[in-house]
Amino acid sequence: MSEEEHCKIKPEEVTRRDFLKTATMWTAASSLGLALLGSLKFPKPALFPDIPKTFKIGKASDFPVGTEKVFKEKSVVVQSHRDGLCAISLICTHLGCIVKAERKKFDCPCHGTKFDDEGRVVYGPAPKPLEWLKISQLPDGKLEVNIAKSVPLGTKFLFS
């Protein structure tokens, strides 16, 4: 390293810094930076072309206590208990396989995770229990499940 330095001709002292020079450098850099920033935003569209995150499941009267309905396309099971309705996502929290809803338990076919009837992990690699989803009532009385919104495990919704 010292050898390299030795070889170099001593740089001349920079005596005067032109204002124009600095200003130019910084505005040019910031304009290109801004353009870069803008194009980094480009790959994420404002809306994704997938099916809606919310879907309607009918009215509360369609779910008498004890019913269980699986919405295959959306991978959600809706159960009606005495203390209200709940929607449980059927997507395994390990790597996103779709779990099989069986009596009082959920089994994941990919890596063997087993969940109990409330979606807690009983056995296997999944790090988290199955997601419970929010059910809300629309002004016209219809119920709507929001796949994007999870609620704490065990939350049940009571509708009239």
Partner: peptide
């Protein structure tokens, strides 16, 4: 040197202005 630097300065300002306008 100054001539070209002035062009850069002016162009950069225009670019910043219009990028911001477009974003707005």
């Amino acid at each position: 040197d100054k001539f070209f630097r002035k062009i850069i300065l002016a162009s950069s300002l225009v670019i910043i202005l219009f990028l911001l306008l477009a974003a707005w």
